[in-house]
Structure formats: structure tokens, C-alpha cells
């Protein structure tokens, strides 16, 4: 009996949640800001500066969405979430958009009832070893001690990879990236493995980064992307096309430097005109003003500019574009046409 009441309450709560989430855009507009879930701190992707202003690669996605809706990149409330709280925060409606280095997997998309709106960073799991070990390939790591974060997909990927290659390893379980850095530097393990972007960021902080090498093998696919609740397709479309606009802008050469000129009057390129709202009515199709994409791109620049500013080769993290280059440059970024 009691259980029935409990389940009934849950169902009602769930129904209400579904009903309320049906118009996220209206809620966001009424509230006057976007609630965006980010990490509590990950180098290059999201971190508050000394004045408490959030910055980073994921943060700029949030700002672009806010700018597309409100024309104001600062109309965002950043909600720091941990690995445990992120999904509940999104499904309960505490946040409207989760941009927190989340790997797009089938079960998250289906079972957890979320919709990934695209991929803003193609990552993969890599290895870092001290240069003095003389290792040049992950296949030479037979018998190595490996620092690995417990309870993550990296742990499972590692087991799969070593078993597939028929070599053995000894795991050193650690809890956080901070702990891993300390253990690795103290020599508690020969190898540190996590996402390649994280390895690069970690290595950049070492006293002697050149003493450590990243091995060429990438052993997993980690497409990291922003996600929204399942069931509100209008909201999902909006955020998806903001992300696509950032990617397409780079491909079409729209930058924060020339966007003012390009949007002042229709250019020779009809697709640029459609994105920037000087031609066609793409904005109204997603319930926004005609200049939505212009505002989104002006917030932090196009995808390439966001990448370069936060994690690119001129930052201490120094990530190359690699898979995250435009398809025209041999990468995987491929925005559907704006038509």
C-alpha cells in the first residue's frame, strides 16, 4: 500500500516534470537567463577566474546559446555539477542545458532520457609515460603499473584494450585527477591514462613537461557534447542549431572580427546570409529573432576561435585540432546545411 502511494507520487511528479519541461524555451525566456550545468572545474573546459567569471570551452557553448536567445552572452547562470549530480540536475529541470564534458553513449541518450545535441569535442583515451622509460607505443606497456580513475569508462576501456592485446597491467586506483597527477609524479605508477585532452592539460602543469610523452594510441571514442532533456524537441533543436551555427561559421569564414561587416548587408554567399539573418527566416523557425546566430557567434567567436582561445595550441594546454578540425581540413566537424 505504502509502496503504491510512493510510486504514485513519483509518477505524478514525473508527469508534472514532463509537462513543465514541454516548453523549456518559454521557461528560459520568462526567467530571463539560461541555467547551464558545467563542471566544478576542468582545465580549459570550465573554470571560474579570480573574479568568479566562468570561462572555458564548454562555458562558451552555454554563452552562445544564451546570446542566441537573449542577445546577451551573460544571461547565463552557471550551475557547477559533479559527475554524480549532473544528470539529476538536468532531468529535474534545475538546469536547461548540460555542457559538462559528457560522453555521448547510447544508454545516456535512451535509458537516461536525454538528447545529445551534437559533439563539441571529439576526445579519446590516451596514455602518458615518463620519457626516460623509452616507451613509444602502448603495446610495449606489458606489466606496467597504471594510474586509473575508478568508476569511469576509462577503467573499462583500459581493461578491454589490454585484454585485446593480450598484455598485463597492474592498476593503481585513484579518485581524482589531482590525486593522479601527484601519484604519477611521485612515481607510484609508470603510466597515467585518461582522456587525451586531460593528459595534455595535466602535462602542461608539470615542471618539466618535456620529460613526459603522450603515446600515439587512442584507445576509445569519447565524443563529448552538450545535452538536454528528452521530450522537448523544440529546445533540443534550438541548442543543436546554435552549436551547428558555431561550427558552420568557421567553415564559412565568419569570425568575430568580420561578423559586423558581414551581417550589415547581404553578402555574396547565400548560406552566410541565411545564418546571419540577412536572408530567409531561419530564426523564426526555432522561435528566435533573425539575428540569433549572429549573436551566438559574436558571444565568443566561431568554433575555431573558441577552440583556440580555450584549449588551442597557443594556450598552455596546447591541443591540436586533430579530429576536431573542419571536415574540409580532414577533421570530423560537419555542420548540416543552413537552408
Amino acid at each position: 500500500m505504502k509502496k503504491t502511494i510512493f510510486l504514485g507520487t513519483l509518477t505524478v511528479a514525473g508527469l508534472c516534470a514532463a509537462a513543465a519541461s514541454a516548453a523549456t524555451l518559454d521557461d528560459v525566456k520568462a526567467r530571463g537567463n539560461l541555467n547551464c550545468g558545467v563542471t566544478t572545474g576542468l582545465t580549459g573546459f570550465a573554470a571560474p577566474d579570480a573574479n568568479g567569471v566562468w570561462e572555458g570551452f564548454d562555458v562558451d557553448v552555454c554563452r552562445a546559446v544564451a546570446a542566441a536567445i537573449f542577445g546577451d552572452e551573460n544571461a547565463v547562470e552557471f550551475v557547477p555539477t559533479t559527475g554524480e549530480t549532473r544528470f539529476t540536475a538536468l532531468s529535474s529541470g534545475e538546469i536547461d542545458l548540460l555542457a559538462r564534458n559528457t560522453t555521448w553513449t547510447m544508454s545516456r541518450d535512451t535509458d537516461l532520457k536525454f538528447d545529445f545535441i551534437g559533439v563539441n569535442y571529439y576526445d579519446g583515451q590516451g596514455f602518458m609515460v615518463p620519457r626516460e622509460l623509452g616507451v613509444t607505443s602502448a603495446k610495449e606497456l606489458d606489466g606496467a603499473t597504471v594510474c586509473i580513475q575508478t568508476g569511469t569508462t576509462t577503467e573499462l576501456n583500459l581493461a578491454d584494450y589490454f585484454r585485446a592485446n593480450n598484455i598485463s597491467y597492474e592498476p593503481v586506483p585513484i579518485q581524482t585527477n589531482a590525486e593522479a597527477q601527484q601519484q604519477y609524479l611521485a612515481g607510484a605508477c609508470d603510466v597515467y591514462t585518461t582522456d587525451a585532452s586531460g593528459l595534455a592539460a595535466t602535462r602542461a602543469t608539470f615542471e618539466a613537461p618535456a620529460d613526459h610523452v603522450l603515446l600515439p594510441e587512442i584507445i576509445s571514442k569519447e565524443p563529448l557534447g552538450p545535452l538536454v532533456r528528452h521530450g522537448d524537441n523544440e529546445w533540443g533543436d534550438l541548442t543543436m542549431w546554435v552549436l551547428n551555427a558555431l561550427i558552420a561559421a568557421e567553415e564559412l569564414g565568419i569570425t568575430s572580427a568580420n561578423i559586423a561587416d558581414m551581417s550589415a548587408a547581404p553578402t555574396n554567399n547565400p548560406e552566410v546570409n541565411r545564418i546571419l539573418g540577412t536572408e530567409g527566416e531561419l530564426g523564426t523557425m526555432i522561435g528566435l529573432e533573425a539575428d540569433w546566430a549572429k549573436n551566438a557567434i559574436m558571444a565568443g567567436g566561431n568554433y575555431g576561435e573558441i577552440f583556440e582561445r580555450n584549449i588551442g595550441e597557443n594556450t598552455p594546454i596546447g591541443l591540436a585540432r586533430g579530429l576536431n578540425a573542419q571536415w574540409t581540413d580532414g577533421g570530423l566537424l560537419y555542420a548540416p546545411p543552413f537552408r
Binding site: G41, T43, A47, P80, A201
Partner: peptide, 9 residues
């Protein structure tokens, strides 16, 4: 969060 800034990582 402080460690996540490139200055203090």
C-alpha cells in the same frame, strides 16, 4: 576550480 584555471593547475 582554482586548479582548473590554466594559471594554477
Amino acid at each position: 576550480s582554482i586548479r582548473a584555471s590554466t594559471d594554477w593547475n
